[in-house]
């Protein structure tokens, strides 16, 4: 069976080592894309893919992307939660690929919450 060749992996390792500042400092931000059945059916995979491509484009090495299950608000999927160090988490709803790119650029990079896309800040406050 054909597999990804070890030589290819060595090239990937060396290429990423050259361009990424690995292990330098801890993650500054975490984005959790909700990946329950409802989220997936609503387009969560495209949201996460768009996010990964934008992170690579911007060469961000201090942003963690992860997934979770259904957040319990299926009608507002796709959803993502943004957590920035020492700041309350922000839950964004009704996402599109364009919206998540804007969230990355405006909220994660510049630190400004996009109120128009946000459902809740922290665990209680809602817009």
């Amino acid at each position: 069976m054909k597999k990804l060749k070890i030589g290819d992996l060595e090239k990937i390792r060396e290429k990423v080592r050259r361009t990424a500042n690995l292990r330098q400092g801890k993650a500054r931000a975490k984005i959790t894309v909700h990946m329950g059945t409802c989220g997936i059916a609503a387009g969560a995979r495209e949201i996460l893919s768009a996010l990964l491509k934008e992170i690579e484009k911007k060469k961000l090495n201090d942003v963690i992307v992860t997934t979770s299950g259904c957040a319990g608000l299926c009608s507002r999927e796709p959803m993502a939660t943004v957590e920035i160090k020492d700041k309350p988490p922000v839950k964004y709803v009704d996402l599109t690929a364009e919206k998540i790119k804007k969230i990355l650029n405006v909220h994660i990079i510049k630190g400004n919450i996009i109120n128009d896309y946000a459902l809740a800040i922290g665990s209680e406050r809602t817009h």
Binding site: I6, L9, E10, I12, R13, K15, V16, R17, T19, A20, L22, R23, L52, K53, I55, E56, L60, N61, V65
Partner: peptide, 15 residues
């Protein structure tokens, strides 16, 4: 094979 390079690094994922 990636050793200390995390597999979930965006650049690795793209490759």
């Amino acid at each position: 094979e990636l050793n200390d390079v995390p597999i979930n690094n965006a650049e690795v994922l793209n490759i």
